[in-house]
Computed example of a mutant assay.
Amino acid sequence: MVRRALTYAAVAAATVALATGCDSGGSDQAAAPGPVPSSAAASSPGPAASATPTPPAAPGPKSKPKPKRLKAGAKGPEVVALQERLTELGYWNGKADGTFGGRTTQAVYALQKAAGLGRDGVVGPKTEKALARGVRPEARSTSGRVVEISLKRQLLMLVDGGRVSQVFNTSTGSMERYEQKGRTYLADTPSGKFRVSRQIDGWRHAPLGLLWRPKYFNGGIAVHGATSVPPYPASHGCARLSIAAMNHLWTSGELPIGTRVWVY
C-alpha cells in the first residue's frame, strides 16, 4: 500500500501578552477669570476640559512557530511515520519501532546525501521536504542485481533490473595518506566493476582494523560492518556500513558470492 508523504505538525506558536496602557491626554485647563466682585476673596475656576483618551497600542507581531525537528533520541508516532516513509522510499532502517536511534540516523544521512543536503542526521524543514517529494537516487545499471557504490554521494545501493531497491549510508576511502609497515599508501576506493569473491561470517582482525562480516569484491577491499560510519569518506578503502545494515545483508541473502559490484 502506497503511503502519503509525511507531514509533521508545526509547534504551536507562543501566545504574546499585550499590555494596553493609557497616557494622559492633557492637563486640566482653567477658565479665564471673570471680574472679581468686591465681596469675593477669589475667583471660581472655570470648567475643566475633558481628557482625550489614547487609543490602545497596536498588537505586536506574533512569534513564528519554530519548525519541528526530529533527531536522535526522539520517540513517538512521528518517529514511526518517519521510519515508515524512509522504508517506503528504500532507505533501510530496520523495523519501525518509534525510536530515533542509530539505524534511523543512518537512513536520514542517506536521504540527505541523495537530496544534496547537509548531512547532520536531523529531520528539519529541508529534509522533511525531501521526504515529501520522495527523493531517491537513480541507478546506473540496467539489468540484474548490482551493488552500486557512489563515491561522490557516499551511498551504497542495491539495484534490481535498473531500479534502486535499498539505499544505505556508506563511508569509503578518505583519500588520505597512511603508513603500514614502513610504506605509505593512499586510502582510496578504486572505481570499476567487480564481483563479491569471498566473505567472512564474523569479525576480521585486519592489519588496519576490525571488519564485521566482510564481503570482499576487490582484493582486500570489502563491504563490511563498522562501529563508526560517518556521513563522509573515512575508511582506508573499504565501503563501511553499520553493523545492523551488514547483519541485514547477511541474514536476507541480499549480497551473495558472485554479486556484481560497481564502484563509480
Rank of each mutant, 00 (worst) to 15 (best):
M1P: 08
M1W: 06
V11S: 11
A12K: 11
V16R: 14
A17T: 15
T20I: 14
T20C: 06
T20L: 15
D28F: 13
A31K: 07
P35D: 04
P35N: 07
P35I: 08
P35L: 08
P37M: 10
A40K: 04
S43P: 12
S44Q: 15
G46F: 09
S50W: 10
T52H: 06
T54K: 05
P61A: 13
P61G: 11
K62E: 15
S63I: 10
K64S: 14
P65D: 04
P67N: 08
K68R: 15
G76I: 12
P77F: 04
P77C: 07
V80Q: 08
A81D: 08
A81W: 02
E84W: 03
E84R: 15
R85Q: 06
G94T: 12
D97G: 10
T99A: 13
G101D: 09
T104H: 03
Q106I: 04
Y109A: 00
A110K: 03
L111T: 01
G121H: 01
G124C: 01
K129W: 03
K129T: 14
A130I: 03
L131H: 01
L131K: 01
A132K: 04
G134A: 11
V135E: 10
P137T: 07
A139D: 02
S143K: 12
S143E: 12
L151Y: 03
L151T: 04
K152I: 03
Q154H: 00
Q154E: 01
L155H: 05
L158A: 05
G161F: 11
G161Q: 04
S165A: 14
F168L: 05
T170F: 01
T170M: 02
S171N: 02
Q180H: 13
K181C: 07
R183Q: 11
T184A: 13
D188C: 11
D188E: 13
T189L: 00
P190N: 05
G192D: 07
G192V: 14
G192H: 08
K193P: 06
F194Y: 15
R198P: 06
I200A: 11
I200L: 13
W203M: 09
A206Y: 07
P207G: 05
L211P: 07
R213W: 07
Y216T: 05
Y216W: 12
F217G: 13
F217T: 05
A222T: 13
A222S: 15
V223N: 01
H224R: 02
T227R: 11
P230F: 00
P233F: 01
A234L: 04
H236Y: 14
H236Q: 08
G237M: 08
A239D: 02
R240P: 01
A245H: 12
M246N: 10
M246Y: 09
N247P: 06
N247R: 13
H248T: 13
L249Y: 07
W250C: 03
T251W: 09
P256H: 06
R260Q: 14
